Computed example of a mutant assay.
Amino acid sequence: MSNKEFEQQLQRNLSALPDDIQPERDLWPGIEHALGQTPENSTQKRATGYWGMAAATATIGLMGWLGLSQLPVTSDAEQLAQVLSQQHQQQKQALLASFDGQPALTDNWQQQVDELDGAAAAIKQALKEDPNNPALLRMLQQVYQQQIDLIERVHAPTWQKI
């Protein structure tokens, strides 16, 4: 099929589509529910949103700092791993506190977090043996980010947001 034939076929198919598509169900009840939230409910969601923004800002700042700076060739890499671990623990605790009382989507999410903790411990052990390896530091940061993403997805999935 030539390019011209393809374009003609595409135009025919596009013109055959209806001009507007009606939703399969009435969407107004969901909109009314979202608009009719109580003030304390929206305040709680706003506070959760602030924690999420703070966590995202800290993560982006750390990623930018790691990406823009040259990784040191001395034992500062070990100190950087410690700082990275401390920041992650603070961020994780703040995130878990913000989701306190909210039901999780799965029952085994804590097991997944523990598995990621095990991966972080293995990377830290490898960093002790090879402290000047920037790939290991990036892997550690990625494991920490996966843990944060997991906690957020389990407690505040995107399909629940309007």
Rank of each mutant, 00 (worst) to 15 (best):
residue 2 S to A: 03
residue 2 S to M: 00
residue 4 K to C: 01
residue 5 E to G: 13
residue 6 F to H: 15
residue 11 Q to K: 13
residue 11 Q to D: 07
residue 12 R to M: 09
residue 12 R to Q: 06
residue 12 R to F: 05
residue 14 L to H: 09
residue 16 A to K: 06
residue 20 D to R: 15
residue 21 I to Y: 00
residue 22 Q to R: 11
residue 24 E to R: 15
residue 25 R to D: 13
residue 28 W to S: 09
residue 29 P to T: 11
residue 30 G to L: 15
residue 30 G to K: 14
residue 32 E to A: 12
residue 32 E to T: 12
residue 33 H to A: 14
residue 33 H to Y: 06
residue 34 A to I: 01
residue 35 L to T: 03
residue 35 L to V: 00
residue 35 L to P: 06
residue 36 G to Q: 06
residue 37 Q to L: 12
residue 38 T to K: 02
residue 40 E to T: 05
residue 40 E to C: 08
residue 40 E to W: 07
residue 41 N to A: 10
residue 44 Q to V: 06
residue 47 A to N: 10
residue 48 T to Q: 01
residue 49 G to K: 01
residue 52 G to C: 00
residue 52 G to K: 02
residue 53 M to Q: 02
residue 53 M to Y: 00
residue 54 A to I: 04
residue 55 A to R: 02
residue 55 A to V: 11
residue 56 A to D: 02
residue 57 T to K: 05
residue 59 T to Y: 11
residue 59 T to R: 00
residue 61 G to D: 08
residue 63 M to Q: 02
residue 65 W to D: 14
residue 68 L to V: 12
residue 68 L to Q: 14
residue 70 Q to H: 11
residue 71 L to S: 07
residue 71 L to R: 00
residue 75 S to P: 04
residue 76 D to L: 15
residue 76 D to C: 12
residue 76 D to I: 12
residue 77 A to G: 13
residue 79 Q to D: 11
residue 80 L to T: 05
residue 82 Q to T: 03
residue 83 V to G: 06
residue 83 V to W: 14
residue 87 Q to W: 05
residue 89 Q to R: 04
residue 90 Q to C: 01
residue 90 Q to S: 09
residue 91 Q to G: 00
residue 91 Q to L: 04
residue 93 Q to I: 02
residue 97 A to D: 01
residue 97 A to W: 05
residue 97 A to T: 00
residue 101 G to Y: 10
residue 101 G to I: 05
residue 103 P to Y: 11
residue 104 A to G: 14
residue 105 L to M: 10
residue 107 D to M: 04
residue 107 D to H: 09
residue 109 W to I: 04
residue 109 W to N: 04
residue 110 Q to T: 12
residue 111 Q to G: 13
residue 113 V to I: 10
residue 113 V to F: 02
residue 114 D to A: 14
residue 115 E to A: 05
residue 116 L to E: 02
residue 116 L to I: 12
residue 117 D to S: 13
residue 117 D to F: 01
residue 118 G to Q: 08
residue 119 A to I: 12
residue 122 A to I: 05
residue 126 A to F: 11
residue 130 D to T: 14
residue 130 D to R: 15
residue 132 N to L: 13
residue 133 N to M: 02
residue 134 P to S: 11
residue 135 A to M: 11
residue 135 A to R: 10
residue 135 A to I: 03
residue 136 L to G: 03
residue 136 L to V: 06
residue 137 L to I: 09
residue 139 M to R: 12
residue 140 L to C: 10
residue 140 L to Y: 07
residue 142 Q to P: 04
residue 144 Y to L: 04
residue 146 Q to R: 13
residue 147 Q to S: 06
residue 148 I to Q: 08
residue 149 D to I: 04
residue 149 D to W: 03
residue 151 I to F: 02
residue 152 E to Y: 07
residue 152 E to F: 07
residue 155 H to T: 08
residue 157 P to I: 07
residue 158 T to A: 13
residue 159 W to C: 02
